[in-house]
Design a protein around this nucleic acid. Structure first.
Lengths: 216, 216
DNA sequence: CTCAAGCCGTACCGTACGTTACGGTTCGGT
DNA sequence: ACCGAACCGTAACGTACGGTACGGCTTGAG
């Protein structure tokens, strides 16, 4: 009523009812279980709600998908604070944490299912699901990592020209072929230990490439 | 008749009729134009053939998709020969060529559309499209690049323990976030010059990490 | 010329799904 | 106790699409 939108009430930035969150969690569960393919009837049954309610709350199928993606994104935000005093060890540890965090996220079944849905949707053009996923994934961690990189540079621990380029290199060193392989259905199980080791290796390589005078 | 398969005649490894190749090219064109979403009727209309023929040749929709993926893969195979005598310059150039080639492939609209279809299909589980794409993409270039890496190691130009790990690092340095961004619909146009520059940078970084005694 | 095979175009069938509509139930407010 | 809003469960509708059937056209062999 407050907008010109006559149909659904959810404006995607206002708070979600607990019941609505339950519904979106049901969608996430369905995505994971059925591999991204599900009907509105499936959602209604799984969430024990009526389809009428789904349409009233989320407008249409795309609205439900977008709300689900945003909901998941809102749950993932992990604080990545780094100590005010930045020395080599602290920088290294922060980078490792970032890397391990990112690997954990992209190898989770939720992320895989969500990215698959977004990729499929990006194919059909008329959607911004891919943009939402990118904004809350790739670009979000970029914006969270860049301050650390620049702090490292200011402290003389890192040496690079363009922050974006440095970040993308780190991104590549951490992710390598993991995400595309998982999205394409490759059986690739990353244990916690492997993730830690990969993050460590990527950090060492990054520091070898961009480390200032003193690096390991 | 020669196999126990009663329905379609195409065994996926035998030669394709020119007409059949035309049909598969039509599928590729549709994938690019419509972003991976198309119906069998679309294919028939675009290829000026009957649906009956499509089903006789390719069995069902999945068969048509698989044949299309294989067909495209068979067109992409580029020879990556490197000189018998391998010095630093030759190694560097070969790596750059590999990188530029790979970036060109993954940023092509055909590859994007094909990967989107494969990702969508991998979601639904019961398919091996993702495996086919992986085998002809990620793993194929791995098998083609590894001999070069090992030749470089034997010549004392590279230093690494595990070839697979070294390759995956190169893969990450080259691809970075490009493929996932493109699959998710990010507008990211790579000019030939940018690709060359990225391949150059990735190669330099790789040599800096794995270069033996002498590196740039 | 005849005939059979292969193929095109199109109509058709069954189903799955998005979307809507509706009757029945719960529940908070008065 | 009464009312209306919200919501559940389900039925129904329209459509899109995968897959099949069929009539007609071309073509090449005998």
């Amino acid at each position: 009523m407050l907008q010109s939108e006559p149909q659904h009430e959810c404006a995607w930035n206002e708070a979600l009812t607990e019941r609505q969150q339950d519904v979106l969690d049901a969608v996430l569960a369905l995505m994971v279980e059925q591999g991204g393919e599900f009907s509105m009837t499936d959602v209604a049954r799984r969430a024990s709600c009526s389809k009428e309610t789904l349409y009233k709350w989320f407008g249409d199928r795309d609205g439900l998908l977008a709300a689900t993606v945003r909901w998941q994104a809102s749950k993932v935000r992990a604080g990545n604070y780094y100590s005010q005093h930045l020395d080599t060890a602290a920088l290294r540890e922060s980078l490792q944490n970032f890397g391990a965090n990112w690997l954990t996220v992209i190898s989770s079944s939720t992320s895989i299912a969500l990215n698959r849905v977004a990729v499929s949707h990006a194919a059909s053009g008329k959607s911004n699901l891919g943009q939402i996923v990118l904004a809350n994934g790739r670009f979000a961690i970029g914006e969270r990592l860049k301050p650390l990189l620049e702090a490292g540079r200011k402290a003389g621990l890192l040496d690079f020209e363009d922050t974006e380029t440095a970040f993308r290199t780190f991104f590549g060193l951490v992710g390598r072929d993991v995400q595309i392989r998982l999205l394409l259905g490759d059986e690739l199980t990353l244990t916690r230990a492997e993730i830690a080791r990969d993050a460590e290796r990527a950090t060492s390589q990054f520091l070898a490439l961009f480390g200032g005078s003193t690096n390991a």
